[in-house]
């Protein structure tokens, strides 16, 4: 018996005017699995993520997603309406900067409800109830449902962004530096929250980060990138505890031990 991968990437290559963004990346992501992508700045992590999520058009390669109705399909060959439909139902994208992923002039409730309304929810009471429910799940007090994100702290904004993305019950979450720019104790709480949500909802996720602690806690598998190439893949603990590639060894050894 074989399980169909939720997402399968084949030979994905993206160049910027001849400079390599990422090249020949291939991997499979199975349902319920969390994949971490680590590497230094400029190693092509974010390029890869954006190509997979349909924000950038890669030069070549395929991104096969196991759709609910038609089974695995190449999202790059889909029509734009189909791809955008995926983008607001089965996929979620958590931006590094919550300002990119939130509507700052719209209340927290409206932010969370937008995806529901986008797929046709037309009952105010129900929309508001599920918005309140999701705020609670990401540990935002429900009496702040009518406040604008601008009145929230950075950490709350980030949690609001997560709620806004998960409300439609996506199957695949793309995360770009989910803990970037946060103070350590807040980071720890965030990771705890994410781990809980990922496990209880059975989400698959692709997490791009340069923070090894994040992937140690969240990711089942790890992919290490350098200069646009994937230099090492494997189970997270295996890669972190017994790094084979020179760059991975460097990366692991540069983490400060407190």
């Amino acid at each position: 018996m074989s399980v169909t991968p939720l997402l399968e990437v084949q030979n994905l290559t993206k160049t910027y005017n001849g400079r390599i963004g990422c090249q020949n990346v291939s991997f499979k992501l199975y349902p319920g699995e969390v994949m971490g992508i680590v590497g230094e700045s400029g190693s092509g992590k974010s390029t890869l993520l954006n190509c997979m999520a349909g924000h950038l058009a890669p030069d070549s390669g395929k991104v096969l997603f196991d759709t609910r109705v038609d089974g695995p399909r190449d999202t790059l060959a889909m029509s734009e309406p189909e791809r955008r439909m995926l983008g607001r139902t089965d996929w979620a994208f958590v931006h590094q900067n919550p300002r990119d992923g939130l509507r700052m002039r719209i209340s927290a409730g409206g932010n969370v409800g937008e995806r529901l309304m986008a797929v046709g929810a037309r009952h105010y009471g129900t929309i508001r109830d599920s918005a309140g429910d999701w705020l609670e799940r990401v540990e935002i007090a429900t009496d702040r449902i009518d406040d604008r994100p601008a009145q929230f702290s950075g950490g709350m904004q980030q949690r609001l962004q997560i709620a806004r993305n998960l409300v439609s019950g996506p199957r695949l979450v793309f995360m770009d530096e989910p803990t970037g720019g946060l103070e350590v104790s807040v980071q720890a709480r965030r990771l705890d929250l994410l781990r809980g949500l990922v496990r209880t909802m059975g989400l698959s996720a692709i997490i791009v980060t340069h923070d090894l602690a994040v992937v140690r806690l969240l990711a089942d598998r790890l992919m290490v990138m350098k200069s646009g190439d994937v230099v090492e893949t494997g189970l997270t603990d295996q890669v972190l505890d017994d790094p084979q590639h020179g760059y991975t060894q460097l990366l692991v050894s540069s983490v400060l031990q407190v």
């Binding site: 734009e80 409730g109 409206g110 409800g113 309304m117 986008a118 797929v119 105010y124 009518d146």
Partner: peptide
């Protein structure tokens, strides 16, 4: 693409 969810977000904000 008939993506009009945002229009209802405005009406939602009104009611809220």
């Amino acid at each position: 693409l008939e993506e009009y969810g945002l229009m209802h977000v405005k009406l939602y904000e009104d009611i809220a």
